[in-house]
Design a protein around this nucleic acid. Sequence first.
DNA 1: AAGTAATCGAGACGGTACGTCATGTCTTAGC
DNA 2: GCTAAGACATGACGTACCGTCTCGATTACTT
Lengths: 198, 198, 198, 198
Amino acid sequence: MPAANPQPRRAHSGPRRDEAARLAVLHAADDLLAELGFGALTIEAIARRAGVAKQTIYRWWPSKVEILLDTLIEDSEKQVPVPTEPTAAAIRDYVHGFTRFVADEPAGKVLLALIAEAQHHPATAIDFHERYFAPRRDRERAMLTHATDAAEISPKLAIDATIDALIGPIVYRAMIGSPTPADLVETLFEDLLRPKAP
Amino acid sequence: MPAANPQPRRAHSGPRRDEAARLAVLHAADDLLAELGFGALTIEAIARRAGVAKQTIYRWWPSKVEILLDTLIEDSEKQVPVPTEPTAAAIRDYVHGFTRFVADEPAGKVLLALIAEAQHHPATAIDFHERYFAPRRDRERAMLTHATDAAEISPKLAIDATIDALIGPIVYRAMIGSPTPADLVETLFEDLLRPKAP
Amino acid sequence: MPAANPQPRRAHSGPRRDEAARLAVLHAADDLLAELGFGALTIEAIARRAGVAKQTIYRWWPSKVEILLDTLIEDSEKQVPVPTEPTAAAIRDYVHGFTRFVADEPAGKVLLALIAEAQHHPATAIDFHERYFAPRRDRERAMLTHATDAAEISPKLAIDATIDALIGPIVYRAMIGSPTPADLVETLFEDLLRPKAP
Amino acid sequence: MPAANPQPRRAHSGPRRDEAARLAVLHAADDLLAELGFGALTIEAIARRAGVAKQTIYRWWPSKVEILLDTLIEDSEKQVPVPTEPTAAAIRDYVHGFTRFVADEPAGKVLLALIAEAQHHPATAIDFHERYFAPRRDRERAMLTHATDAAEISPKLAIDATIDALIGPIVYRAMIGSPTPADLVETLFEDLLRPKAP
DNA sequence: AAGTAATCGAGACGGTACGTCATGTCTTAGC
DNA sequence: GCTAAGACATGACGTACCGTCTCGATTACTT
């Protein structure tokens, strides 16, 4: 039974979303956060810096949290992608990469700011979970499961507990203001994942 | 030439600080945070709720962060004091107590809110460090040092790293919204501190 | 001598002005004014109500005042035409008709709204003068002149002064919110124009 | 037993209304109306010009119409007070004064702007009536009544009709943009009030 | 007992940012 | 070349809090 979709519908007419404005907003938000901190990150300031009308921001983003989520998702995918090959070495690199991301990268500051904001507004918490945390956690889980199946690692804890025990200290230290030294990460990695001897 | 300051400057005159107002403010802040979240925690709302003039708040606290620090310091001292006897059991109780504090207590929410706020404002970070974090960390460090000396525990990591690896996952999970299960805490405790067999 | 312009230049191409859209706009403006008052009479609201794109309005009318002028000119010509026969009775009917127009007709409300708008924007004042007031005043003047020549009336004041003294109270009362009673109109008519005894 | 009023109540404490700010707002509104017209009379512009915070305006005036009413009431009382002595001469002066007020004075422009605004917003109409029009009309009525009783004048129309027939043309002409010549006022005065020969 | 000084409530003030609305200009696609 | 749709920069709207300030009343230490 063929039945082509019958909605011609008048697809849409008029101007499409202005990509230049979209990027200007994302960059302005990033820059302001890096330069002046979250406290100075107002919609008006973003609009001013981006050379864009306030209404253009409100048209596309319901809140400044969504702007930050957009930049975080794009940047974290580029800078610390969850590896897909299930080797101990890939996982080790990922954890070290994440440590550097959170400590040094502007986008890492965005991550911390969003976790912080989620403490203040329940709606932000939900948003953050749905758009950033849950998808990434799913991929991290898959990564560890495959590596365990391949006998690359043999975690002593359940899978989510393992991730929290690994990531938790890194994020906690970043929030407290003291970056995590590489050897602590290394020890946690060895200890929690017990990678097979090389 | 020594010459101690010769005039204590006219000790004081007029009414002293109104203790009832002080408590009303602290409780109002606590209640508002618990009921409506940090977003609704404005100085005006605290003053309204406490039945106190705004100026009375500004006279005694430079910012709402200081109000929260006051309640956090008082409540955390009561609800999760750092133990002084250097036994493995005491430390174990402390870690479980802290987990419960952060997950269930209003004052635990204050702690998370302050760590969050510290991400947004550098001044808050400094304040939080000086008034809450550093003193408590000092006592935690002493606790572990004494217990190690007494051979109650034998941590595999350096002392601060140990604390972060223990506390980090608990705080991280609380911030992410999933309370830490007791068995994860138990495993971290066993693993990181290696208490002497009972 | 042939050579009249042989090509009207491709007189026009593409669709001509959409009469349905034109009428929809005029009626939408009228309706909105009557239903919600001038305050709710925005270009966007007219476009919404008329089912027409904003640009279609801006293409044909420079401002909403012009829209109202269009409806006023059409409607006032229909509902209170300036009489051409120079008899006292015709003039009397005209004045009473105008009183009713201003008090009861939707288009009368448009007239008041435009006089009002002219107080707020000098450009509106000029527009109103050129397109509505001056042409009508010219015809009123002609009407009175002819009637005076025909000895139907013998005004005691100069001609413009007479019109203002007659129309002024009617418009003023309408603006103030109390419709003019017929006997006041009657008295003004008798008094100012002194029609010849019948 | 004299019985002093028993509410001591704590009459009021704290700063009273800032008279300088109040005057700055009234003058700024007046100036802006005169210089740029009603169209440019926004709350933000008034606040800017007056060097006052927007909230200070909203604290004391529910709308810009109330600001204008305040200036109109103060200024019209000063510049064209309704006379109290019931002589034909006083009334004559009043009508001429009113004509000048409406044509030349900034506050006269305020009057016209408010009548105009009343056409656009019913709430303004009510406000204008209650605060300016009705009180003044009452005094005008009293003035004419007393003068009639004293046989200074003998109006041929009912009292309100007389006032409308006198004031209407003056206001109408001002709105249409042509100031009323003194001789028209004179004729209307003579004609409608029939003052006793001097 | 009178004088002095700091407290408290109330709340006005100049500000900044909020999120919404209408403006008039513009761009795109369909008829 | 007109149309509907609608994105865009602009700027006012009215509200909420900010942190500073001033007022009167109250209360406790001087002297």
